[in-house]
Each structure stands twice: as C-alpha cells, then as structure tokens.
Design a protein around this nucleic acid. Structure first.
Length: 424
RNA sequence: GGAGGGUUAGCAUAAUUGGUAAUGCACCGGUCUUGAAAACCGGCGGCUUCGGCCUUGAGGGUUCGAGUCCCUCACCCUCCGCCA
C-alpha cells in the first residue's frame, strides 16, 4: 500500500511511476480526498479536546461533591456535534483507504519502460536448448503416451484445467518437490514451512491480491476462507502485525504448497496441457529483509531459483519485467523462463520479486532497530513451479522412442530411475 | 457441536462502587566511567495543522464518562462429544 505522505509530498514522482506502469492515476482526486479527510479529522480532534476537558471537569466536581449538571449538559451538546462529524471523518477515511489499496507499487528505477511482455528485457541466458533429430512432441502427447498424466479423467473428476498424475507422473512431482526443498533448506539457508492452504481476508489483502484481484481467486462458500493462489500469501502473513528484531533479519522461508487459481479471463490461453491449470504444485521462496539489503537479496533469491534449473540441466533465460508487465505489488520482478521445445520458446517457470515495503505496509510487518519500528521489505519467488518443471523435463528430455530421461540430479529422488520407459 | 476460562504496549503483569491505562523486564538515548556494568534521567504503539487526538482482540450498545456493564463476532486455553 502507498504511503499517502509520499503522494502528498512528491506527487510528480508518483505520477511518473504510475505512467511507467501504464496505470495512470488521478492524483488530484486523491489529494482532494486526503485534504478533506485531514480537515475533518482536525475539526473532530478539536471537539474531542473540549470533550476531554469537560469530562475531567465533571470528574473533579463529582469528587468534590459539587454540582456538575451544567457541564454535563454542555457535554451532551458536544456529543451530538461530534457524532455527525464522525460520520464525515469515517467516510473520508474509507474513501482514501479504498483508493490507496487500489494503487500498485512504485516500480524501481532499473525496471525498463514498456507496455507489455514484448518490452521485457532479457538479462541473461543459461544453457543451450537441446537439438532434436526427430519431430518433438509436446508434453501432453508425451505424458499421455507414457500413461503418467490423465487429462480426460481429471476433467471428469473436477473439470477443465485440472490434472491427474499417475505412476511416474505423480512420483516425479513428489521427487521434484523434495529435491527443491532439500536444495533450499540445506544449501540456501531457508526454513521449511508447511502453511494453511485456506487463508482469511486480511491475509489476502496483506499480500495485495485483494481487493483488486478477487476474480483470480477461489473462495470457499459461506466462510471467510480463500484458497491460496501461492504460498506467498500464508508465508508472508506469518509475520503480519508483528515487530521483528533487527538481528532476526533477514528471514528466509521455503514452502511447498498446492496453488489454486481461477484463471478468470484467460479463456483460450494455454487451454491444452498443464501449463495453465486451476491447481498446481509450487515451491515458494519468501524473504523478510531490512530496506537496505532487499535489492541484494532479490539477486540472491533469483540465483537460488536458477540453481534448480541448472541442476536439472534445463535451458532458461532471465527477464527483467517492464513497467507495464509488472505485478501489482512488485517493485521489480525477474521472470525465469525455461525452454519449452514444442512451443519453440521460453515460458515462465518462476517469478522473483522485491515488494519493498508495499506488502509490509499492508500487512503491518515491521522491525525495530532504533526506537521507531520500521517496515521490513518482503520478497518472494518460485523455486520452482513444479507442474511447469515437469512440462520442461518431459519435453527437453524426450527420446525418439517416447521415453523420457530423468535428469541426473533427480535420480536419487526417483529411486535411481534413469528414464521413464516408453510403453508399447 | 456443548460447557467453562481467557485476549491490556516487544514480553510479562496491574487497574476499589464506571472517573479517563499503572508497573517490571527487554530495548534505545543521555549523565557518570579509561571502557563496561551498576545507578540515575529521559524515551520506548499510531497520527498531528505540535494545540493536541487516537490506542485495552474486532464491531456495536448503555452513559456526561467504559479496560470495567450489556450484545454480536474472531482467536487462544481446559474439559465433553465427534473425528483422520
């Protein structure tokens, strides 16, 4: 959430930032609502001050057994005035809050200008896309031939955009989850978390999915529960409304969870296969840091996610998202895009972001070093999206006979299996 | 689902019949010291137009005035029931 003071003191900076995001805002309206709120608050505080004084007078008089009826009468009148003023103040505060919650984060200076994903900036490449001397198949064909993913039965059980993994398909997901969790806990210093998959409204508001993006989420009927779209939500909210100690920062968490997304508005995109589904597994990295270190921590977090792709021998590139493509809460995002042979292109498999103090402000996550508590910075990134990793492995490691070689790093997690054998 | 107890600042604990939140620890700053500790002084939730205002889990109500009384809700603890 935005600091209203920043808008008040430096509107040009905010205006420029929102333009960079391709999401211009009407700052004059915001400033007008703010001014209205401030004057109403001031007026009410004046009244309160008189109320408090009168109240003290009454208490004193009563103690001395003096008559206080005249002061009590005055208080009754003040009370009526403040009741109407209170409504004005409350309305103004709600108006301002609504606007502030709808504003996206300020993009960092290093975020490139641009409208959409075509303007994203490729930072670096790793690995070579494999060369095939046969016609490559896409992951759907490969998986169905191997009998490891059953899309039609998934549709029967749940509906379109669900998967049913079976046999080696289920096993490779479990192996990937364990491999990723082990790497991040044992090598990169993250604490493993297994959080709730249902969360309440304040949690979803804290990370920025609400109030604007409720259409992307699943809500449980007749409750205040939302299905998490990413582990970012429950894990970032671990420290909601807390004041951390400076010496406890940075805090690193890694969590495996299923993720649930309604994918409203994505009709016609990636309808086939397991690239875009309503439920998928993901291993998520989350950090809480001091403001000075968050940019370094973003580089390190991104490297931690890249490590997984490197170990799996999957070619990828790192992309710096442009202003127009940046997520609502993010100040800067690196997407890791893995090579997908059947599409002859790179597809997102991880998104690593620095949210600066945007989420911390919403979720009230602070730390103390001198006397005043300060907002922490929060970061997160997929490390990695498991379903899409399976897609990448199936397509990049496919063999002409229909079998799929298991990347070496994963074999210990597959009971030493070296390939998923082709079926006759 | 039922019964009872609880929620006060970073933590821990107070607050006569309703009179406007006290104290300890931790932490920060200062005095003192060669340095530190101790002691002492100040600070130690948010906002502020620097006059003040707000803050006792959340939201209502009664009252001139609510931590305190009433109602609704959330969460935590104990027990019963049900349950993987």
């Amino acid at each position: 959430m935005f600091d209203i003071k920043l808008i008040r003191n430096n509107p040009e900076l905010v205006r420029a930032a929102m333009e960079k995001r391709n999401a211009p805002v009407d700052l004059d309206t915001i400033l007008a609502v703010d001014a209205k709120r401030r004057s109403a608050v001031y007026e009410m505080e004046q009244l309160r001050a008189r109320q408090n004084q009168a109240s003290e007078t009454i208490a004193r008089k009563k103690k001395n057994r003096e008559d206080a009826d005249d002061v009590i009468e005055e208080m009754k009148q003040i009370k009526e005035q403040s009741a109407t003023l209170e409504i004005v103040v409350r309305q103004a505060e709600e108006d301002l809050q609504e606007i502030l919650l709808s504003l996206p984060n300020l993009p960092d200076e290093t975020v490139p200008f641009g409208k959409n994903e075509e303007d994203n900036q490729v930072i670096r490449h790793w690995g070579e896309p494999p060369a095939f001397d046969f016609e490559v198949k896409d992951h759907v064909d490969i998986a169905e031939k191997l009998g490891i993913v059953d899309f039609s039965r998934a549709a029967k059980i749940a509906g379109a955009r669900f998967t049913l993994s079976l046999g080696y398909g289920a096993q490779i997901e479990r192996a990937l989850i364990n491999f990723m969790l082990d790497a991040h806990t044992k090598l990169h210093g993250y604490t493993e978390a297994l959080p709730p998959l249902l969360v309440n409204t304040p949690s979803v508001q804290g990370t920025g999915q609400l109030p604007k993006f409720s259409a992307d989420l699943f809500k449980v009927d007749n409750t205040d529960y939302w299905l998490i779209p990413t582990a970012e939500v429950p894990v970032t909210n671990i420290h909601r409304d807390e004041i951390l100690r400076e010496e406890d920062l940075p805090k690193y968490y890694v969590a495996y969870t299923p993720c649930f997304r309604s994918e409203a508005g994505s009709y016609g995109k990636d309808t086939r296969g397991m690239i875009r589904v309503h439920q998928f597994n993901k291993v998520e990295l989350v950090k809480f840091t001091t403001p000075e270190t968050s940019w370094d921590e973003l580089e390190k977090l991104t490297a931690n996610a890249e490590y997984i792709l490197q170990q799996l021998g999957l070619a990828y590139r790192v992309v710096n998202l442009c202003g127009g493509d940046l997520g609502f809460s993010s100040a800067k995002t690196y997407d890791l895009e893995v090579w997908v042979p059947a599409q002859n292109t790179y597809r997102e498999i991880s998104s690593c972001s620095n949210f600066t103090d945007f989420q911390a402000r919403r979720a009230n996550i602070r730390f103390r070093r001198d006397k005043k508590p300060e907002f922490v910075h929060t970061l997160n990134g997929s490390g990695l999206a498991v379903g899409r990793t399976v897609v990448a492995i199936l397509e990049n490691y496919q063999q002409e006979d229909g079998s799929v070689v298991i990347p070496e790093a994963l074999r210990p997690y597959m009971g030493g299996l070296t390939q998923i054998p082709a079926r006759p």
